[in-house]
Design a protein around this nucleic acid. Structure first.
Lengths: 339, 339
DNA sequence: TGATTTGTTGCAATCGATTGCGATTGTCGT
DNA sequence: ACGACAATCGCAATCGATTGCAACAAATCA
């Protein structure tokens, strides 16, 4: 069967043109299904191409047409170098992005980059092989992104929105989200709160800020922040050590992510501390796994699917030349069992 | 600063050559840091390129050199069309693959494809923009992959290994894994077992087969299989319905994946059934979340990180022309709390 | 001094598809 | 029967970088 379908390898459009008895240009137009060439020859050429399993070289086409059909997805790991792409939040967002992009016929190129200089993003957008770029997370690279955004339009960033910024972002109002979580814990009667998260990136820092602001309505409550990395092996140790230090001193924990919350709950369970009765715990993100665990996680939802849709829509508009603006989504408290 | 760094836009190597007073060829060699050009001119040209923020067009380079530095990662969704890329197992494996590939300087292009004809894989490998391809899961497309593997060498597949196949696979011995899970349940004293999973793909089917074979050592035990899809919304309903039908009739469940197990445990919990006391549950995969849930999941581990490493290594060897063979990894029972 | 080697650089072909423009053939109207 | 016009198709330039080969100068050797 293989022999029947591929009588001789056709390597390029010119060879196909030769055995079809036409010129290369005609073949190109025929394969693009342009009405400029006669319907019969067009179909004959297409059939011939199918027989020989020939497909035009994408590199050449892209070089010539100056467009690639490829969207770059970039994950900068500035302040958290040990974090891997396999982090569930990245993966979830990335999964939705991939769904959106492939459904609209785009290809997708992933780069994880550990910023070694200020040029990492320039290298990516200037490489000449992208129609646009999506950056997931600002890390501590806000300024670099800002600089590139000045002259490169088809760029959309997942992250925080600062007043007057040039870069186009899609993201949730992190301060509002932090406030939601803290208020939920206060409403349950918790008074001695802890915050688990890494505040080196702007997003988590804003969540802490929001939580702190919520505390101002409850003068007798306290909130202390404990650095907690996301790299998952280390995270568990850090949390265990926090819990050790805090034994009996707290009754509520605002976690900066669902993963941190999940690990925290398990470690509390191991110490024989009941959730939410003795210590209430909130997450952040509302990953799919938040509903699958026991107890189900009370968390601040950012609608990742909607966010992905917004990013792709915005990017598409910017590629088309429009001047699409940032999107700030409102977080929502999802009240389940853990707080 | 922007104006200082980019006095005039340099669009290609020829323009750079002109303002450097040399030929395009020299610039090309200088930028590639070849010792063929004088060290001084080389550094002068590199400095000039840096000043102007110039980077050679990748499309042109790739067209000329016939190599792209891009590895395609393909996810065929043959029997499970509604499943999204955001499935945790895919994402986890993909994450590790991304880590491995980016660390070795490769770019990575993701395609999710719903096989509409027999040509989907041909389209991808013949597109001329890949150095090699990784296929995640065979779905029901074994034959298509087999055909392409006959003439396209740099192709590595995650999935099952059949006697005499041509395609190069990396995967776990699924039958052995299924047997491990079943034997664990039997060893706990369970006798009336159920299997939750979708046996349309070869991998899950083999897990069921292995479990059935393990049963032969326990004549008084039974195992019934219940179709359970992976698309997560539907999965929960199916499982709920199974549990309804099976109420009180079973004491052990072999789940085809950790996600199925996680959902099953939560639903059992909702029905007031204790895990593992009344019904023991095993998972499959050992995703990171298996340790984070309560109760921690007893599961059959496939070392996804090692698998990713093996896939990338094998692919690299095949790109280099070697004749690397398949890898069959041995699964391992990770005994935690759920069984 | 003449021949040969070494070190640098330029020239031009090449990768493979796309596309503007001109050439050819055939059709229609008058 | 002749010019206008449409439908097809071929020619050749183009996208931008790479690289074998030749050209040239300087340096070394006989």
């Amino acid at each position: 069967m293989d022999d029947v379908k591929k009588p001789g390898k056709i390597r390029n459009i010119a060879e196909l043109a030769r055995i079809a008895g036409v010129s290369a240009g005609t073949v190109s137009r025929a394969l693009a299904d342009k009405s400029l060439v006669n319907k019969e020859t067009r179909e004959r050429i297409q059939a011939l191409a199918r027989e020989h399993g020939f497909r035009p070289n994408q590199m050449a086409r892209r070089l010539r047409t100056q467009q690639t059909g490829v969207i770059g997805v970039v994950i900068p790991l500035g302040h958290e170098r040990r974090q891997h792409i396999s982090d569930p939040f990245f993966m979830t967002l990335f999964g939705y992005l991939a769904d959106e992009l492939t459904e609209s016929g785009h290809d997708l190129m992933l780069s994880r980059v550990i910023p070694g200089d200020d040029e990492w993003l320039d290298r990516i957008v200037d490489s000449g092989m992208l129609d646009g770029a999506l950056v997931i997370g600002q890390s501590n690279q806000f300024d670099v992104i800002e600089r590139v955004a000045q002259h490169y339009r088809p760029l959309v960033v997942w992250g925080s929105h600062r007043e007057g910024q040039i870069q186009c972002t899609v993201g949730v109002d992190n301060a509002a989200g932090g406030a939601l979580a803290a208020r939920r814990l206060l409403a349950r009667g918790a008074k001695r709160l802890a915050f688990f998260g890494d505040t080196n990136g702007p997003e988590i820092a804003e969540r802490l800020l929001g939580a702190q602001q919520a505390l101002s309505a409850a003068p007798d409550a306290t909130l202390r922040s404990f650095p907690t990395h996301l790299a998952s092996d280390e995270m568990a140790n850090q949390i265990a050590s926090h819990l050790q230090d805090l034994d009996g001193q707290i009754d509520g924990i605002v976690c900066a992510s669902d993963i941190i919350a999940m690990t925290t709950i398990r470690l509390l369970h191991e110490r024989g501390i009941a959730v939410p009765e003795q210590v209430a715990v909130t997450g952040f993100d509302d990953l799919p796994l938040a509903t699958r665990m026991v107890p189900q996680l009370t968390t601040v939802r950012q609608d990742i699917a909607a966010g992905a849709r917004a990013m792709v829509d915005t990017l598409r508009r910017r590629i088309a030349g429009e001047d699409a603006a940032s999107t700030i989504m409102q977080p929502e408290l999802i009240q389940r069992e853990s707080a």
